[in-house]
Every structure is written in structure tokens, then in C-alpha cells.
Nucleic acid binder design. Structure first.
Lengths: 255, 255
DNA sequence: TCAAAAGTGTTTTACCTACACCCATGT
DNA sequence: ACATGGGTGTAGGTAAAACACTTTTGA
């Protein structure tokens, strides 16, 4: 379940940013608490099942801070866009990724020390890309396995962990599988996606029944050819709806 | 359920803030997308059961914008604190409220038009105050019924709605009831709190059993005196743990 | 005919709701 | 006694996991 716990204070040992003499806007503010302005950036944690593993889109930084480390696509807001729009924009600009099946706000990180050069507040988004979408990535970008991340810049590793948690929760009580799956698929293909995303085994039998009972799946009528090893050809299915919906509002304590 | 849906673009008709000639920090940024700095404030949506209703702490604004409307406690960050620390600080400073049983980050709003004077990004927190804590409030502050809010400033009404949604979800799958309840209580007192928070009826019988099965409740050993109308004296209970824990990770698709 | 893969039927377990009934107190 | 509110026992329903079994194909 999405356990967004609080992230209280702990603003010790925070190096004061060297820039930006604070702009006092409202005269009645006390002088010791100036109204500051802050760099604000959007982080896009884009997850996808790649070769049976849950991976995140990263790119390798070319300059300090954290030169050589990996980071999630990000960038500052313009004066007129929302954070969500900025996340979408940077994905398109930086890695030419426009086929996001789902995007939702994750959390905002504001620890003063998270960017050692200049204090930056970051609002992270969770994006999902279907497994059959495989955009051409720039040379310095790659899909990184979430269970074996390389050294990450800033607090990106912990933001990715949050995103994975969020995805795992929502796979249970929403129809979010549509955002990982191709438009059509067999149950065993879908099973592999769920196994990769959840990190534990899933029974194809029960997966089909659960998703069917919740009216998430419908058969397309077509069947896949059986593989070279033989076997019965699998029916193909699709998700009934391709936008997020809560399919299993938790029933405890209900009216 | 916490349905954090994305909140994409829609950055039309946004009045450009008149201040702050954008500070270009990284030379390689394109000139038409300057790296801006933004006012950033913390919003504290504090919920409490007051007289059997779910209420939110608000105060009446004395100046524009939205003079006379109600708002949730808020204020800008200082240069060295996190957003969570700012939320906590404003609650203490503005309404002398320090007995928050639970605080968690909710969401960040960044629509350019949300503050008509000066673009401000706001990160909202959800705070909970036990029903037996009744802090003295300043004259211009009050507990407002969440199901019948007065006209609210900015986007505060919709942020409050999000907070109520979050609370209702988490009451189902976590032990968050501890943050609404007094240290000791009878089952029927607890039932009234859940009814107020969830907005629908709850059976005392089943509430007790559900919370006991999940090891959230334990008897204190003491009993309440029966009321003037007679009746069996009620046992008193307490929450076993008073920090948030997921007690019912949703079971579908589990290993 | 056999192996492999897909799909269905059935059993078991867990949890939650509903409801009847018993318990302890004041009047 | 009896009304009032508190607490427990039990039956019924729903959902999911586990597992045995059938179906459909290729070799």
C-alpha cells in the first residue's frame, strides 16, 4: 500500500546556498524568516518492464555534481508550466519519450542538502511505459534494473524506491497493469509482467481470475500461435480500460 | 483509495508573475526556458473530529487575495528548512498547535494561476489531531466542517478534499485511527470517531473485531462508568502503537 | 502417443458482515 | 423487574490461493 510517511524537519547541517539574497516580498514578514525563492525541478521516474525486469529510465550525468553517476530525467520549471507539464516536457526533450501510458505525482523532496550546489526542491512523478513501447534512447540513457541500481545522483535512488512501492501498491487495487502491458497479450505474457513488477511469483491461473472478476480484462477473440515447443495456443486479452481506475476499493469497514 | 491522479499542464491563461527577472544559472539552458525561482509554501491540512464531525483547521484571511475567505494554515519556506518543518512551524506559530499525532506529505500544487498575486507552488501536508486535544485557537481560527466548507481561498477546498480522501483510505488499511482517538476510549466512542471520519455508519461490533484481529487495539483493564441511563460499563481500550503502520497490506496477488 | 503450454473446476482458507443472544449496570 | 447500553458466539457470504484435471497444439 502506498505508505507515504511524513518526512519531518531534520534540517540540520544543511549548507546554505551561496546564491540568491532573499527577496523580501511582504513587508510584514519577520526579518529572520525571509520569503525565499527556490529552484524547483520536476523528476520523472519512468518505469517499464524490460527483459523480464522492472527497470527505470536513467541517464548518465556528464558534469558535476555527481558527474558519472546516473540520474532520472529532470529539469527546472519554466515560469508558466506546472510541474507535471515540466516532467512530460523533459521526457520528450531529453529522451524523446512521448508514449507514457500513465503519469502521476509521487512526492516532493525539499531537504536543503539534496543538491550540494544550489538548493533545489524537486517534485517527482511516476511514469509508466508499456512493455511493447521501446523508444530509441540517446547514448547516455538506459533502462536500469530497479533491484540493482548503479550509483545514483542526488536522492534519486530513494525516489525510485518510492516509485516502485507506489507501483506495487497500485497494481493490487487499481487496473494499473494496463500501463505496463501491450495492447494485446496472453495471460502468461501478462503474468511475466506482473512477476517482474511485483518481485514475487504470481499464478497465471489466479491472475486471470482476479483481473476478470474485477472486469479489467476482456478476450480479444484472437489467439497466439503456439510456440515451437507446441502447446495449446493462448487466447489474447486486452485491458477493458486504459486509464487508471480503482477497481478494488478496500472493503474493510465499509458501510 | 488514494487515487493520486496526474495533474497535467493546463497552463493557459496564467498571469505571468511581474517580479523576479529569471536568473539564468546554467549557461547551456535555452534562453526561452529560463531557470526560474519560485515562491514555495507549506500548507497544513489539519483534520480532527469535533463534535462528531470531521473538521479542518482554518483561519479567516484579513487581506487580499481572498480577503474574508477561509484558508488552511500556510506560509513560505525559510532557506534552511524542509517543507514538512515549515508546515509544523506554521502550525505552532500561527495557531499554537503542537500536538499533531500524525503528519504526512499529501501533494504539491503548481498551477500558475493558483495564487493571483504571485506564482506560488504549495506542498500540502495532512496533519491529524486527537479528539481529546482541543488547543486554544486565535479568534480568527476555527474548526470547519469538511462536508460543509465556507468559501475557501486559493485551491484550499480541493486540497482539503484530497486530505479527506487520504484519511479515509488510510483508516482502512493502516492503524491511523490512533491519530484521531484519545489515548484511552471505549469502543462506542471510537465508533463515533470512525463514523465521523468515514462519513458512513460503522458497526461497533465489527469495528472492534477488525481492529483486534489486526492487533491494533488492546484493553487497558479499566472500565468507564456507565452513563446516567444505566447500561453495562464499557471496557476501555488503547491503540497498541501510536505511529503509523500498514496493518492490512492488500492481499490480492500476494506471493 | 507424448510433452508442453493453456485453461477450467474444485477445495481450502481467510476475512468480514449480520444477527441473535448474553452480560452488567442504573432506576 | 426492566430498560439501556456493552460484549460475544455463530452462521453465511465473498474472495483468493492452491491444486488437480482437462484441452489443444507440435513433434
Amino acid at each position: 500500500m502506498s505508505s507515504n510517511s511524513s518526512r519531518p524537519s531534520s534540517s540540520d547541517s544543511a549548507p546554505l546556498p551561496p546564491t540568491a539574497a532573499a527577496v523580501t516580498r511582504v513587508p510584514s514578514e519577520p526579518a529572520d524568516q525571509p520569503v525565499g525563492r527556490f529552484r524547483h525541478e520536476a523528476l520523472a521516474v519512468v518505469l517499464r518492464i524490460t527483459d523480464g525486469r522492472l527497470t527505470v529510465l536513467g541517464w548518465q550525468r556528464g558534469r558535476d555534481p555527481f558527474s558519472g553517476a546516473w540520474a532520472v530525467p529532470s529539469g527546472p520549471l519554466t515560469q508558466t508550466e506546472t510541474v507535471g507539464a515540466a516532467a512530460t516536457r523533459y521526457l520528450a526533450e531529453r529522451v524523446d519519450l512521448t508514449q507514457i501510458a500513465h503519469l502521476e505525482q509521487l512526492e516532493t523532496r525539499s531537504e536543503p542538502g539534496r543538491d550540494p550546489f544550489d538548493r533545489t526542491i524537486a517534485t517527482a512523478y511516476l511514469g509508466l511505459v508499456p512493455a511493447d513501447v521501446d523508444p530509441r534512447l540517446p547514448d547516455n540513457a538506459a533502462w536500469l534494473p530497479t533491484d540493482d541500481l548503479p550509483p545514483m545522483a542526488f536522492d534519486h535512488e530513494s525516489v525510485i524506491k518510492s516509485a516502485v512501492e507506489r507501483l506495487r501498491s497500485k497494481l493490487s487495487y487499481t487496473n494499473l497493469g494496463f500501463a505496463l502491458a501491450p495492447r494485446e497479450f496472453t495471460i502468461s505474457e501478462l503474468r511475466q509482467l506482473y512477476v517482474a513488477a511485483l518481485g514475487h511469483d504470481v499464478s497465471a491461473t489466479n491472475l486471470q481470475r482476479v483481473l476478470t472478476r474485477r472486469s479489467q480484462l476482456e478476450p480479444t477473440g484472437s489467439v497466439s500461435a503456439s510456440s515451437r515447443a507446441g502447446g495449446r495456443p493462448a487466447k489474447r486479452f486486452r485491458f477493458v480500460e486504459r486509464s487508471m481506475r480503482v477497481t478494488d476499493p478496500f472493503a474493510a469497514l465499509r458501510p
